[in-house]
Design a protein around this nucleic acid. Structure first.
Lengths: 232, 232
DNA sequence: TAGATTGTTAATCGATTAACAATC
DNA sequence: TAGATTGTTAATCGATTAACAATC
């Protein structure tokens, strides 16, 4: 009753690969702007900051888009990665919490550019509502449900204080949003089917502090494996 | 009353574990504020958003800080994780690029609180230099080397436009900074021994877009094997 | 063809998870 | 003791890497 894998090309791109595709895309766009028509895995990997074996393995999950002996056509690979990432359509984004961070996000180039469209900026603070930010007028948080419905928002960005984040998230989810990007330092609870990604400054700092401490700590680099031991 | 840490414990905590320790720490601090004296791996895992097997495995890399049949002492575990992460000392941080993002970072609670100290805010724009942000006066980028030396800055935060990031990074590294947190959308080149962590809004958005697309795509969940494709 | 470079294989490494003996 | 929960084991899963046959 269970037919086997129906397709020759097995999909299901590994999560680690998905996380690197945007990096490759950015590197390719930089090459494209410099007018480079074609690039080898070695060169692209170097620009993207990975090794070439990993790059080729990653790209092989998308299909065979290179030419042996030649490399990859930059334009074509940009298109293929964009398509795979879902950037050939526009996703509507709503940002809640228009403090410094929300403003930084709204003004961030990455949003306006291909693939995303800011549908609304919302805040709970009446003194902020009505401000012009990145060419948009800040709306009141009470309009969240209406905006999500009318503008078909599929990605909600939370840039509120920690205490408000879960409440905003619940409202997003209830209104039909299925992807959330959370900048507030809390773990959000969401039902199955909703994706949450978290960007957390203090976690990044703490990870750096850990490694920084290791560097001082007797200066044992990444290679340190414990005391000298003889063969078993 | 037994000797608590009998031996130096084999070091070399897995990277994946290090990345979760800050999450556990935050969860423990929340429990602590609610006055919870003791917590089981099951409960702590639930607050931190992981499963309990992973939590116990992670904590086992630090040592045996729990009590069978009882759980973990919240205060004690906070202390042990803080120590492991290097948060029992203060790390000096300099932030370069005091636009909206830099201001958001400077005002972010996670900085001021235990473990980190903002030593300087720097910008290249003369109209920004002298501004008061988070109680500090913004300095000129030309003072970077002096500030890093005098304030013993060990973590550099880059919140500049992409085009300026590598140059600022080089100056940090040359001045002796060995950890960099980069918010600019570029891959930074650093010599061995320097750690770079990257926070990249547009990458996070693109990863969400990928999963969002999969949800629409015939609603096939993780198993979807792709559309029919033509011959190569 | 000869040289270059991909796409794939297979080995290795690291992370996750369930299960349970140890032990409070 | 009896119940609860840790810390560890071992199986599994997923990611990385080097090497090279395929092939442009």
């Amino acid at each position: 009753m269970t037919p086997r894998t129906p397709r020759p090309r097995e999909r299901g791109i590994p999560e680690a690969t998905v996380a690197r595709l945007p990096v490759y895309l950015r590197a390719l766009q930089a090459l494209n702007e410099r007018g480079t028509p074609t690039v080898s895995s070695e060169d692209l990997a170097s620009v993207a900051g990975v090794n070439s074996a990993k790059l080729r393995k990653d790209l092989s999950h998308l299909g065979s888009y290179g030419t042996r002996g030649v490399g990859y056509d930059v334009d074509y690979l940009i298109y293929q990665i964009s398509r795979e990432l879902g950037l050939t359509q526009d996703w509507s984004v709503a940002i809640v919490g228009i403090g410094n961070l929300g403003r930084a996000l709204a003004n961030y180039g990455g949003f306006g550019t291909r693939g995303f469209r800011i549908a609304a900026l919302l805040d709970a603070d009446a003194t902020v509502v009505g401000d012009k930010v990145a060419g948009l007028s800040v709306g009141h948080i009470d309009t969240l449900e209406a905006v999500v419905g009318e503008e078909a928002v599929s990605i909600g960005v939370i840039a509120t204080p920690a205490a408000a984040a879960q409440g905003v998230c619940d409202r997003f989810v209830e209104a039909g949003v299925t992807s959330v990007l959370n900048f507030a330092p809390v773990v959000l609870n969401v039902p199955p089917g909703v994706d949450v990604r978290k960007v957390d400054l203090s976690i990044e700092l703490q990870i750096l502090a850990f490694h920084e401490q290791r560097k001082s700590d007797g200066h044992a680099g990444p290679e340190w494996a414990g005391p000298v031991e003889g063969p078993a």
